[in-house]
Nucleic acid binder design. Structure first.
Lengths: 349, 349
DNA sequence: GTGAAAGCGCTAACAT
DNA sequence: ATGTTAGCGCTTTCAC
C-alpha cells in the first residue's frame, strides 16, 4: 500500500499528526490525545487511530512537541576525558547505566563538554548555553569535589539537576543527590583483610583536602579501631596516580612493614603492584592489596585486584528517579540517597 | 539593570527574538538575520542588535529553530556497555573526542541504547524511533563487524550516518567511514620486537570470522615474512577474553617456545601476563608482550604494556568532517579515511 | 537593508 | 468524546 499525502511532500518527510488524522477520519487533536491521553478516547476511535498510526509509521515530531511543551526530554551530562595513566573508568559504566535508566523514563542523554581555554576547562558557559537555549531539561553532575563550582552555580540559577556525589562543601545545598558510601566500602575491604589474618594493614589515600578521600580513609580506620588494631604510621596521603601509589607503598613497606594495603583507588593499588613487582613480591601471596572502583584494570591484572565496586546501575536508577521528581508537576525534591558498594574479592587478597 | 519584558512572563522564561527586537528597536527578522546572516545588516544596526542580545543574554530557542529548519543539530551515538572483564575502553576515549569535535561543528551528541529483549539487544528500533521523530540529524556507528545489521539498515533507509570502522562485509556500501589501519599497528609492534632481537614471535588473535582480527594478524605475518622469519605454529585464534589469552599463551609457550607475543587486543595481552605470572616469568625481561588499544590497563599494569594506540581524536575529527559533508547543502559524500596508529612502548617489551 | 506575513507540527484551552 | 482555535519561537518567502 502506498502512502499518499495531500501536500505532495517528498516521501522522506515523516508523516505528521494531520496525516494520521486524515487517514483515521478524525481531527488532529484526537490523534494527539490517542498518543498522549489514550484514556480520553472511545475504544473504537482509539483503535482506529492506532491503526492509522501503525500503518503510517507515525511518531510525533520532537521539535514541535518540544516547542509546544517547553521541554526537550533531554538530560545534559558533562563528560570529562578519562585521565590517561589512571584506572578511572567509572564514567563509562555510569554513562551506560544512565542512558538505560533515562530511556525507560522517556529521556535521552545529551553529552557536552566545556571549552578548553589554555589548560583549564571551563564548563560553566556550556551549561549556560544549554540552559538558555532550552536544549536540555536538566543536568546530571558527577564531580562534586570541593571547589567544583558547578553544583553551586546551578543551585543559584535554580536549574534542575541531580548530583552523583554528595554536596561535600555546601551543607545547605538543596538539590537532590545520590552517592555511594565510600567508608562502608573501605571498611569492607579492611575487614576482609583482617579476617584473612592481616593486622599490619596500611592505607594509601588522597590528600587531606579531598573529603571523598577522607571518607574512604575513615572506613579503614573504623575497621581497624573496632578491633583495637593500631594504625599509627600506616597511613599515607598522595596524588591519585600510579607513581604516587608506587612511591608511597615503597616507603610504607620500608618503614611500617605492612602485610596488606587498602587503597582509595584502583590507580593507587596499581602503584602498589608496581612496587611489589619491583621487589619480587607476589600480590596476594606475600602482600595483599585492595583497590576501589572495580575498574577493568582490577578485573584483568594478574592475579586479579580485589576492589570495592560501586553500584552504578543503582545510582543511575536513583538519579533518574530524582530527575523525574524534579521535572514532574508539581516538582518534588528527592532527598539524598546513599547506596552501599560491595567488595569483589580477587587474587590480590 | 533589571530585565523587564512586556508579557509579564516569569523571569525563568528565557528572552525570545521578539524581546531582543523590541529592545533594539528593530523587527524580529532583523534579529534573526543578525544571528544567522550578519552580513545582511548594516553595521550600526548589527551592533545595536548584538548589544541587545548581550544585555538580554539571548540565545535562540532550540526547539523553535529545530522545528523551522527541520534539523536537530544532534548526532546520535549508540552506546554499548563495556564488557566486564575485558580491557576494552576505546569507547570512552572516542566518545569524549567526538563530543569535542562535534561541539566545534555546532552539534551535540545524543546517546542512546537498544532495548534488551532477553539476552539480545536490539538497537534497530531505537535508530528508527530517533529517525522518525527527527530527534537526530545523523548517526555515528562504531561497530561494523561482520553481521552487524546497522550500517546496512541505515544505508537502505538513506539515513545519514558515518561509520567508525570499514564496511567489511559490504563492498558497495555508500556511506562515509573512518578507520584505523590495524595491520600497520601490529606490523609496527612486530617490527619493534624484531628490532629488539626477537625471532620467535607468536600471534594471539581472534577467530577467523573477525575480519578486523584477520587484518591485525596480517600486520604480524607481513612483518615476519618481510624478514623471512618463519611463522608456522606461532599463531593462535581465540575469543577476546583474558582467560582465552592465558590459555593460548600457555599452549604456545609449551609447543612453540616463542620469546614474544603480539596480541590483537590488550585483553589478550593481559591473558599472556597471567600465564607469565603463573610461571614466574617476567614480562619484558623473559618474554615480551604487546597489546592493542593502549587501554588504561596497558598504561597502569606493571611493568607497563606496550600497545598500539589508535588516534581516536583524529578519528573523531574525520568523522565530524564527514558528517558535515553529509548534512551540508548540497550533501557531499566523504570517501573512506584510513588513519595510522602509533606504538606506545612500555616495560613489557 | 529592513519589515510583514506565513507556517513548521504539535498540544493546551476551550467549545460542542 | 471529539473538534476548533490559538500560539509556542523561529526562519523563509516576498514586499518595500
Amino acid at each position: 500500500m502506498s502512502v499518499s499525502r495531500p501536500s505532495g511532500r517528498s516521501s522522506v518527510t515523516p508523516p505528521t499528526l494531520a496525516d494520521v488524522a486524515e487517514r483515521a477520519g478524525v481531527s488532529r487533536q484526537t490523534v494527539s490525545n490517542a498518543v498522549n491521553n489514550p484514556d480520553l478516547l472511545r475504544e473504537d476511535t482509539l483503535s482506529r487511530v492506532q491503526q492509522a498510526i501503525a500503518e503510517l509509521g507515525y511518531l510525533p515530531n520532537r521539535a514541535a512537541r518540544n516547542l509546544r511543551t517547553r521541554a526537550s526530554h533531554l538530560i545534559g551530562l558533562p563528560i570529562k576525558a578519562a585521565e590517561e595513566g589512571t584506572a578511572n573508568a567509572l564514567m563509562d559504566r555510569f554513562v551506560h547505566s544512565l542512558v538505560d535508566s533515562s530511556r525507560e523514563a522517556g529521556y535521552h542523554v545529551l553529552l557536552f563538554s566545556g571549552t578548553r581555554t589554555g589548560k583549564a576547562v571551563d564548563e560553566l558557559p556550556a551549561y549556560d548555553d544549554l540552559l538558555r537555549s532550552t536544549a536540555v531539561d536538566a543536568f546530571v553532575v558527577t564531580d562534586t569535589y570541593l571547589g567544583n563550582p558547578q553544583a553551586e552555580w546551578l543551585d543559584q540559577r535554580r536549574a534542575p539537576f541531580v548530583a552523583f556525589g554528595r554536596p561535600w562543601n555546601d551543607p545547605d545545598a538543596r538539590h537532590p543527590w545520590v552517592d555511594v558510601d565510600g567508608a562502608a566500602g573501605t571498611e569492607m575491604a579492611t575487614t576482609h583483610l583482617i579476617e584473612r589474618g592481616h593486622t599490619r594493614i596500611a592505607w594509601i589515600g588522597w590528600r587531606k583536602d579531598s573529603l571523598l578521600g577522607e571518607e574512604r580513609r575513615a572506613g579503614w580506620s573504623r575497621a581497624m579501631r573496632s578491633r583495637d588494631i593500631p594504625t599509627s604510621g600506616l597511613a599515607s596521603r598522595v596524588e591519585d596516580t600510579v607513581s604516587s601509589g608506587r612511591e608511597a607503598s615503597a616507603v610504607l613497606l620500608d618503614e611500617a612493614h605492612p602485610s596488606a594495603f587498602v587503597c582509595a583507588s584502583d590507580t593507587l593499588a596499581m602503584g602498589v603492584l608496581h612496587t611489589l613487582a619491583e621487589r619480587g613480591l607476589s600480590a596476594g601471596h606475600d602482600i595483599a592489596v585492595t583497590g576501589f572502583d572495580d575498574s577493568q584494570v582490577a578485573q584483568t591484572v594478574p592475579p586479579g585486584l580485589t576492589s570495592v565496586r560501586q553500584p552504578l546501575e543503582d545510582v543511575a536508577v536513583e538519579v533518574v528517579k530524582a530527575l523525574e521528581g524534579l521535572l514532574g508537576a508539581p516538582p518534588t525534591v528527592h532527598p539524598g540517597v546513599l547506596l552501599t558498594p560491595r567488595l569483589v574479592v580477587r587474587g590480590s587478597s
